Structure formats: structure tokens, C-alpha cells
Simulated scan of single mutants.
Amino acid sequence: MELRGKQKRFLRSEAHHLQPIFQIGKGGVNEAMIIQIGEALEKRELIKVSLLQNTDEVAEDVAEELEAALGCQVVQIIGRVLVVFKPSSKEKYQKVSTQVRSI
């Protein structure tokens, strides 16, 4: 699902009040973290991921890695915080994605 400008703006406004639930530190992005982020996206659809100061990772590189591995979309990157969206495959968790489709 390719997002249009209005849909991205809606997702950014929804994510504004969220706290980052994943932090990428000096270990960088590994397989276990990608699996956990995928599981969190399945339940929540919209999450924030922050990069700690001690990491060598660059936010844009992490965004590309997550998009390639999970098929998600990085809606926004502000400094060291990424807003990630992926529609859930289970209908009971599809709260945000149904709102996005209606826009």
C-alpha cells in the first residue's frame, strides 16, 4: 500500500503522541530486533523507533533496512526518531489502517 501525502500527514499526527518503543543502540539493527519490530507493527500498526547516541547507525540506513526486511513504510524521520507504519494482517488490529484507507 503506497501512501499518499494526506495519508502520511495523518499518520504523522497520530504518531506525534507516541513514545518510541524500540531503541537501537551500539549493537545496531539485528535479526532479533527486526522480528520484534515486525511483531509490534502487527499489533500496533504505527510505532516509533529511536536511535541512541551511542549507535553508529544512520537513521536513513535503518529506515531502508526496515523497509526491505519488513515491507513497512517509514512515514517520518526526525533527527534520530523514525515513525514506522505497516497495516496489520489481522482484522482485529486494523484500527489505524482503516482510518488511513478512508482518507
Rank of each mutant, 00 (worst) to 15 (best):
Q94A: 04
E91K: 03
E14V: 10
E57P: 00
I103F: 08
L46K: 04
L70S: 05
L66I: 00
G79N: 11
K6F: 15
R44M: 02
Q19K: 14
A63T: 00
S13T: 14
R80P: 02
K43M: 11
E64A: 07
K6N: 12
V96W: 01
V100F: 00
A63M: 02
V29T: 10
E39V: 10
E31M: 06
R80M: 01
F85M: 05
Q23L: 15
N54R: 14
E39Q: 13
R4G: 14
K95F: 14
A69F: 09
N30H: 14
E45A: 06
S13K: 06
V100N: 00
L52H: 12
V84R: 02
Q73V: 03
I77P: 00
Q36P: 10
L51G: 08
Y93N: 10
E14H: 06
G28S: 03
V62K: 04
G27H: 08
I103Y: 07
E64H: 09
L70Y: 00
N54A: 15
V81H: 03
N54Y: 11
K6W: 13
R44C: 05
L11Y: 06
K86V: 05
K92D: 10
L11P: 09
A59L: 00
L46N: 02
I37V: 09
Q73N: 06
Q19N: 15
A68L: 11
V74E: 07
R9I: 15
F22K: 13
C72N: 03
L41H: 03
K26L: 14
P87D: 01
G71V: 13
K86S: 06
G5T: 15
L11D: 06
K6P: 09
E45Y: 04
E14W: 10
L66V: 06
L52K: 14
E42M: 12
V58A: 13
I77K: 03
I77R: 01
V84G: 00
E57Y: 01
E67C: 10
L51R: 04
C72A: 11
K26H: 13
H17S: 15
Q53H: 14
E60T: 01
L66E: 04
V49L: 02
N30G: 08
L82G: 02
A68H: 10
G71A: 07
I35M: 05
E14T: 07
S102L: 12
K92W: 08
E65C: 03
V81S: 01
I35N: 12
E45M: 05
Q94N: 03
S13R: 07
N54C: 07
E2F: 14
E64D: 08
K90P: 01
G28F: 01
E65Q: 14
E45C: 05
A68P: 06
R80N: 13
A68E: 14
V49T: 02
G38C: 09
N54I: 09
L3C: 07
M33L: 13
F85D: 05
F22L: 13
L3R: 07
D61Y: 06
R12Q: 09
M33Q: 12
E91M: 06
C72M: 11
